[in-house]
Design a binder for these strands. Sequence first.
DNA 1: CCGCTAAAAACTGTCGACAGTTTTTCGCTT
DNA 2: AAGCGAAAAACTGTCGACAGTTTTTAGCGG
Lengths: 253, 253
Amino acid sequence: MPDRSLASRPESSAAPQTPAPRARRNIAREVALALRSDIISGRLRPGSALAEPVLARLFGSSRAPIREALIELEREGLVQFQTTGRTKVRSFTETDFAEIRDARVALESMAARRAAENWTPADTAFIERNIDAQSKASTLAELSRLDIELHEYVMKHSDNKRLLALWQSVRWQFEMCLATTHRLQQKLAFKPRNISVVSHRRLLAALASGKPALAAETMASHIEGSMEWSSSYHDSDEDKAPSAAAVQANAQT
Amino acid sequence: MPDRSLASRPESSAAPQTPAPRARRNIAREVALALRSDIISGRLRPGSALAEPVLARLFGSSRAPIREALIELEREGLVQFQTTGRTKVRSFTETDFAEIRDARVALESMAARRAAENWTPADTAFIERNIDAQSKASTLAELSRLDIELHEYVMKHSDNKRLLALWQSVRWQFEMCLATTHRLQQKLAFKPRNISVVSHRRLLAALASGKPALAAETMASHIEGSMEWSSSYHDSDEDKAPSAAAVQANAQT
DNA sequence: CCGCTAAAAACTGTCGACAGTTTTTCGCTT
DNA sequence: AAGCGAAAAACTGTCGACAGTTTTTAGCGG
């Protein structure tokens, strides 16, 4: 399997319970990173239970960092706390799709407006390189990565830390929807590739036009246009999802 | 112990907006509530250190729930984690003001658009009652509460849980700016009271007009107009802020 | 073979503890 | 009196443990 584990936990396999000599970097952060990757990649499927003791054993840590990682993931919308306190990988419906789209439109339109106010030739150059790369991308994953990179660039250049922070907490949900769709039907997303490039070029023109209002409006229609594939989405396997143990490979390193 | 402040009294008369369906982290939730109240009310001033052991002793709990409460407050933007891991009450500058304004415009415009799509006479009635109450409000605090209640109503009726969640994480920052401004200059906010009522009426008309785009636009200009007082804001006392011990009275159950 | 209850297993919320750091305190030097 | 640096105090990140719940499992009767 094309396993690409991001987990970065040193040792812990050979040495049984060494008093952890050093390198005590933020475990919670690492756990969140690994779990995020597992969830988006689909290794952990929607509905899977995320029990703290299980994850703690898996990552060779105590429950404290796991707990914080789960809070972080909940904030990002990738997992859900149940009323009983248990945690499950979130599953997305078409309603969620629409919500994410609207949230993106709201945040990114405003960001585009502000970014357009301070737009520079260097920004244009960056986006142009990105679009070029998109037109040459050979895989869906690459295409998605570039698309998100472009949008993140605009968010960062809105020069509004709050806008960016809010966007970050929707970003992973969007990536997950994207990844899920790709897995469900590979072809779908390839068709609009050229259309997408055109749309991005128009967006770039608006950003560089010196007209913030135009940038905002163009961003809105760009996002709405690019998220039309939502109808094809559906999730089923709520149950029988693999337990956290299934991602053991990712936890080890 | 000259001060004997009542524990948080975050309203509950008009709109029991927190149904509290068996909250998950219990102590954590209470601690967050109390601290939030202390921060917004100004009992805990910007720059104050929030040390976990101190708060734990204060609330008679262990550090675990305190820690989660602090994470919650950080998510809401009321406190800031430093690179050393310590936590301080956040202080707001005019830049923050502008950021919050833009974030509100982005989120609430979209919410207004969606809310307008499903607007009902009952909604109009609720908002009308709210505006009437505003015109009769006798204190600044009451006025603010009603204003926020109105905006929260629109957010909730956008029927988009994500939009609402994002808004919640900006809400308290906004309330804090509001409260700070009020403390700094009582008179300022009273002048535009009537203007504010007019603006709200126009907003209501837009929401009920059946034209989502108009509702969005009107909401945007309403927020921008209502947040002009930002210039008067300034924060100074970064240091020598009272330690958490100062709010002991509030910590008592 | 199915449904139902009771025991067993697993999980969450919370607690106290410890090691490594960061911040304060305080005595000494200039 | 200001400056400096080491010792003391306080804090964070993490760990293991326990009580109260919730979910599973297992056994029993129909």
